[in-house]
Design a protein around this nucleic acid. Structure first.
Lengths: 338, 338
DNA sequence: CTGAAAGCGCTTACAG
DNA sequence: CTGAAAGCGCTTACAG
């Protein structure tokens, strides 16, 4: 393949001058530039990214660190991976997929081998062992997911508290005074998924503020168990006629449970949910819900990281992406009987 | 960070000698090697992959080309991405995620910029525009998914025909003489997803060979439509008491439809399926099924590609990964009433 | 077995 | 505005 030297010879200039038009960092006479561009086109030349990286000590590559076995658990993962790669490319960056079981050593290797300029950590949990080396090396990185203590590292996540308020308000605005909240298994809270309690706490607070009774049901894990828990919660006497769901498994099971109970939505019960877009799409869940907006989160993460690369010493940013409500007529207006 | 020069100085040898122990391509006196290794450890040195790539003209990186908007459609995509990255790493390769809307230009850029040594194309369809540039450049690549005409390019896929035979045999072995086959919408066949017709044709052939009547139901796309089609097929008078499913949406909807129809599995109807592992796991589908085995497919794809890198002129390989049946007691033995 | 030298394909001060 | 030179951090014949 052609090198910068071939182009220089073809255009009758020096390699430096070719480099100047390649990088665009220096002014080149229009007519010289034209000759060089013609030579580039003629030889079908493209710059060797690796050589450029060596010369500039910038790889123009971001490392995307996925947690071990993540793929098994999150149907939305692919959406984030693709969205991040797309966003990175728009800024001229490539994305290296780092999936090592041991996330720490994945990071150490990528950093030590200078394979990437910065890192994006997906699905960060509270005591994420991947955060250690990041802080230790002071390596440019952004977390997707919001640990309670970000330790001065940049982080981006959906604003789950705002999402909860949006949903509670939506129900309250339609006259609901009593709502069941189906939420995550206890393990999820215990394992430091702050999104779970950010949502729940905000839902409880907002419900209190709106004078709404909110009955929390922690669904167990396991499809059948989730179904059982939902069934029990919805069929018990005096159960609320509104349901707020923050649990993908529960959202997926819900149509079947409602059918079993002969409950029509929204005639018999109003439903509002926060679930992954993937889920809604695949199973056509017909519930008013908050969109998780993976593209917005991915875009913000990439932008924060690129800002960080430009300004290593700027204060850390914690960005919460505002949620949006997608209405699907699953909430009806009720007249409170006082 | 330390360079090879620092290590050489620390160990009192030349850079060449350090390089020899790094690459392992030359013999080095044990005591010299020990000194060098000590220096490496002391300085916490790692080789700069970019510089090595420039010197060797091998990037040790594979490009993973994902189709545009793939993420929206395939819940199993993440599984493949992670499995491929894992397999690549085991062979010393990194994985660059290429998601450009225009797959062709993604390939051209990665190839032209010498960012990768080879390419893995995910979810290949019959007239995949990405295959053109591969063939044109004679660039090392492997297709995951099997077009009818691989045009001399390496390809790896699950053996869908064998999967169909496995499932038909399983039903036939349990005495079923009449089976409904719920399969993909017509668009899927039209869009060159050969897995769809490889499965269907083999199922029809094997059913004929086993003396089984097979009623094909092409489910439409869209969750509600799938449900309707299943409902109609299973509720019509004289419907078969065995169901073979090759359609993720149908598999996902099936529990609800069966419940609506008050059909117990396997008491009233036997069910066997080929669906993504993701799906089975998330929704706990309790059906005997063929595992799609993403790890095996990913592993084979990476190995084929690495063989190709070593032997650019070897004949193309088309590898079909043998399927495995996972029994889940959803098929019962019936006594044929002749 | 070890080392000096050249080279991989770029960029970037620095002269002119 | 353009070019000669040095350098990025490696590897690899080639001598010794």
């Amino acid at each position: 393949m052609a090198t910068i030297g071939d182009v220089a010879r073809e255009a009758g200039v020096s390699r430096s001058t070719v480099s100047s038009v390649l990088t665009g960092r220096k002014l080149v006479l229009p007519e010289t530039r034209t000759r060089i561009e013609a030579a580039i086109a003629k030889l079908d030349y493209s710059v060797n990214t690796g050589a450029r990286a060596l010369a500039t000590s910038r790889t123009m590559t971001l490392g995307l660190v996925v947690r071990f076995h993540e793929a098994e658990f999150s149907p939305a993962l692919a959406t984030y991976l693709v969205a991040i790669a797309d966003a990175a490319r728009e800024h001229g960056y490539g994305v290296l997929l780092l999936t090592e079981v041991d996330g720490e050593s994945a990071i150490r290797r990528a950093v030590a081998g200078r394979q990437v300029d910065g890192l994006i950590l997906l699905s960060v949990v509270e005591d994420d062992p991947r955060i250690g080396p990041i802080v230790e090396f002071r390596f440019p990185a952004v977390l997707v997911g919001m640990p309670a203590d970000t330790r001065g590292v940049d982080a981006v996540d959906l604003d789950f508290a705002a999402a909860a308020r949006l949903l509670v308000d939506h129900l309250a605005d339609h006259g609901h005074r009593e709502t069941t909240l189906a939420t995550w298994p206890d393990e999820i809270y215990a394992s430091g998924r702050t999104y779970a309690w950010r949502f729940r706490n905000a839902a409880l607070d907002q419900a209190a503020a709106r004078g709404m009774r909110l009955d929390v049901v922690s669904c167990p894990s396991g499809a059948e168990q989730v179904r059982g828990a939902l069934w029990a919660a919805l069929s018990r006497p005096g159960a609320a006629r509104a349901l707020l769901v923050h649990n993908d498994a529960a959202a997926a099971m819900l149509p079947m449970v409602l059918r079993d109970l002969h409950l029509e939505v929204p005639g018999d019960i109003s439903v509002a949910s926060l679930h992954s877009a993937e889920l809604g799409q695949h199973y056509a869940l017909p519930y008013t819900s908050v969109d998780a907006q993976p593209e917005a989160v991915a875009g913000q993460a990439v932008e924060v990281l690129i800002r960080r690369l430009a300004a290593p010493d700027a204060p850390a940013e914690a960005i919460l992406v505002p949620p949006r409500l997608a209405l699907r007529s699953s909430v009806r207006t009720v007249t409170p009987q006082s």
